[in-house]
């Protein structure tokens, strides 16, 4: 796996501050629904990157967490009538539990076997969602109301909804950022760098991997649940393995193991899909494939990763 470039840590708070401000004013310049879609996928990709970029675990089943949380959130909000924040919480917890189970089953294996087990488990979830009637099969869960936040703020207003999504994204991003920059994250990096050595220093690596997997799954769930509220729909698309593949693409394109890479990757992919869907129709998939191949062949560090190494080489930081 490609080694992530060192980050100019001193510039990080400034950069994050600027980006945060941009996020605050963005809905007045760009269509909010489009932005919300980007934020949901960005959180999904950040959660995925926590595993692949910082522990070195390639999960090929993250769609299961995105999708399951979406369905759970849709059900409790539409059918039970819970408020949206409880819906998101329910989705997150469900995805976390499912992640713990997946992790527990898959983590004993490494490399390609780990990826295959996660894929197989995710496919089981997909077929479950196709079969059981609670998920609405091919139709999905339609007409999920956005409701009122805490029973007060009306979320059918797109701007209000945007700020909720933005707040959720920022919280999720902070959890990931903190996890990476914590005593726990330090051991995760050690495991990524040299697992046998981490074991020989007395660290129970399976436990570390399982906790990281559960955090990653739960946050992927947060993204999925939020997305359901935004589009008022939970569908099979989100549990399909395409979604698992897309998140790999977003992370690699943006920059594996970088803090901001997955956000850039998600924004790029979602923008391209939206733009291209109008002009080239189903050729989107082919174009995505070409981008993926180019990225893996020529820009292995991803957009942010390449930029970082460029800055590092020119000695700007």
């Amino acid at each position: 796996m490609n080694a992530p470039a060192a980050f100019p840590e001193s510039k990080m708070p400034l950069l994050l501050g600027v980006l945060f401000a941009i996020g605050l004013v963005a809905p007045y310049a760009v269509y909010p629904t489009f932005l919300m879609k980007i934020l949901c996928y960005a959180l999904f990709a950040c959660a995925f990157n926590l595993l692949l970029g910082f522990v070195g675990l390639l999960s090929f089943g993250h769609a299961a967490f995105l999708g399951t949380a979406g369905y759970v959130c849709g059900m409790v909000v539409r059918d039970i009538g819970l408020t949206p924040e409880l819906g998101i919480l329910a989705g997150t917890v469900a995805a976390g539990l499912l992640g713990w189970l997946f992790g527990w089953l898959a983590i004993k294996r490494t490399g390609i076997y780990f990826a295959m087990i996660t894929l197989a488990l995710a496919q089981m979830v997909f077929f479950l969602c196709v079969q059981i009637k609670e998920t609405g099969g091919e139709d999905g869960l339609q007409g999920v109301p956005r409701g009122h936040l805490l029973g007060v703020i009306d979320l059918s207003d797109n701007i209000a909804m945007y700020y909720l999504v933005y707040a959720i994204f920022c919280c999720g991003f902070f959890v990931i950022y903190r996890t990476i920059h914590s005593p726990f994250g330090q051991i995760l990096k050690a495991i990524r760098e040299n697992e046998p050595r981490a074991i020989s220093l007395g660290y129970d690596v399976t436990k570390f991997k399982l906790i990281a997997f559960t955090i990653s799954a739960a946050l992927a769930g947060t993204a999925g649940a939020t997305k359901t509220l935004v589009f008022q729909l939970a569908s099979l698309t989100d549990v399909h393995w395409h979604a698992s593949g897309e998140v790999v693409l977003m992370t690699l394109l943006g920059g594996l193991g970088t803090i901001l890479g997955p956000i850039v990757g998600a924004a790029t992919i979602v923008s391209l899909q939206t733009q291209l869907a109008d002009s080239v129709g189903s050729w989107v998939t082919v174009i995505m494939g070409v981008i993926f191949v180019l990225c893996v062949l020529a820009f292995r560090r991803g957009m942010v990763g390449e930029l970082q190494s460029l800055i590092k080489r020119s000695g700007v930081n």
Binding site: R178, P183, F184, Q186, I187, R197, S200, Y203
Partner: peptide, 30 residues
Amino acid sequence: ATFPHLTVLENVRIGLQRKLGTEFHFWKSA
């Protein structure tokens, strides 16, 4: 057996860290 993309100091700290008992604390600052 080193951790190549950590600094030399961080490498040794990985060894020292366990006795703090915070190795699972993902909510604390590094």
